[in-house]
Design a protein around this nucleic acid. Structure first.
Length: 108
DNA sequence: AGGGTGACGATCA
DNA sequence: ATGATCGCCACCC
């Protein structure tokens, strides 16, 4: 299993109406500090059919620029994600990964 | 091999 | 809140 595959798998777990962040996805995939690689992976989101719009920067901020940023915001609002200013209200929309950080035995 | 580059993130002024 | 700086790390010349 490559790092990129794990990152992709993590992104696929974000349900509609919820969001996550580059850093959180990286951690959920088992690669803390690899936020930039998550972003890199998202460049092929369309081809991989990934919910790319559900991944935001730390604090729920859209890191895209120009038209893409607008589209991301539009897509999120379309599935019920509320914004507070320029940021998503993470308190109510952040997806919590159930990924165990310490593969100890197993999550009961 | 070496240096520049990000859809990052945390910290500080 | 905003901008600068720095640490990070796979990619792409």
């Amino acid at each position: 299993m490559t790092m990129q595959n794990k990152i992709i798998a993590a992104i696929r777990k974000i349900p509609k109406g919820k969001v996550s962040t580059y850093g959180a996805v990286a951690r959920a995939a088992g690669y803390p500090r690899y936020a930039r690689q998550v972003a890199r992976t998202l460049h092929m989101a369309a081809a991989l059919n990934l919910p790319w719009h559900r991944v935001l920067g730390a604090g729920g901020e859209i890191k895209l620029t120009g038209h893409s940023a607008f589209e991301q915001r539009f897509r999120l609002q379309s599935e019920g994600v509320a914004f507070r200013g320029r940021r998503v209200d993470m308190r109510t929309h952040e997806h919590k990964f159930s990924k165990p950080r310490s593969p100890r035995r197993k999550a009961q």
